[in-house]
Design a protein around this nucleic acid. Sequence first.
DNA 1: CTGAATTTTCAGTAATTTCTGAAATTATAG
DNA 2: CTATAATTTCAGAAATTACTGAAAATTCAG
Lengths: 186, 186
Amino acid sequence: MNLTSDLQSFVLHFGEMGSRWGINRTVGQMYALLFLSENPLNADQISETLNLSRSNVSMGLKELQAWQLVRLQHLPGDRKDYFSTPEDTLDIALTLIQERRKRELDPTLSLLRDTLLDSDGAESNGYAYGRMQEMCDLMEQVARWSDKLQQMDRNSLENVLKLANVTHKLIGLKANWSLKSNPDRS
Amino acid sequence: MNLTSDLQSFVLHFGEMGSRWGINRTVGQMYALLFLSENPLNADQISETLNLSRSNVSMGLKELQAWQLVRLQHLPGDRKDYFSTPEDTLDIALTLIQERRKRELDPTLSLLRDTLLDSDGAESNGYAYGRMQEMCDLMEQVARWSDKLQQMDRNSLENVLKLANVTHKLIGLKANWSLKSNPDRS
DNA sequence: CTGAATTTTCAGTAATTTCTGAAATTATAG
DNA sequence: CTATAATTTCAGAAATTACTGAAAATTCAG
């Protein structure tokens, strides 16, 4: 398969960005290719289009599956595995948030909770433990916020993004009211 | 300087996590140490505490400054440079969001805009260009959302986090009203 | 079952990134 | 200025990560 210049650029760019996103260059390229492709692709097609070894593509696809960023499917009358990305970009964004949280937040949150729970050292070095507590609190809030996002329906989610500017005003005006109208919250 | 076991663990853990966050192990350790330290530290103290070469610490501090995650200051009667982290963890989180956006979103957004602007190829390969357009739109929304966060005052920001669950309901109930009450928005 | 098609594993190599010590640069006290 | 303290730079070494080809494992049609 051959890519036009624009698509080629996008794929290469995505590869470079990949390293900033915690995936490597070739995995980034594979993802970009699948994202742009109207039809699902098999490993050989990817390998050929991007000039990567078949084994590298196999590992890359495994990683993309671990990230839940591609889905495996089969085409009728073809034994090969085919891969594609979700059609809805919002779905993709949600997955990205969830997976990054899992990798970047949860391990630290877990360590902080453990440390703070059985810390007799809390008095001996008050400042540092206070700091860890602050970080823990903040991370818990972000984690809860991420959970909420995942639960929201598509429509509300679009509104959260579109109306970010409005939310600010709403909260400013209505924060107290909101609390009152939700008496089931501690 | 000597760290207690808990602090040691935190610093080492943060080092490991560093690689998932786009900074390397030693830079992660340096940041963790500064974050936990009540008083600003100079490069020699960091170098000694973490067993890193002086030059490595110098480069690491430069990177942390590029991320705006530490601030340089001077102590009276001491020629050395001292470094510390902001006291407010919300400030830190905001900086992190801003800097990651700059590194992870903006370059791709820029490429996408350019590509989509002067794309005569839009017809020849409709699907791929449509895909790029979707990604571009989504990234622009996230970028705007990040801008809004930066502008908010501390109080509203805390509410955004605390009341994430409420926001959902507010938006659901009030989306139309919100739009009407902001006629200056297209 | 058998064997061809397909995917995965993995050891070795290549490429990249990180880290260091020595030298160069910069800053400042006297 | 000069001398010393402090920081930065940078070439090469060390460590890590990515990639490949060959071999092993798996899958499935017949």
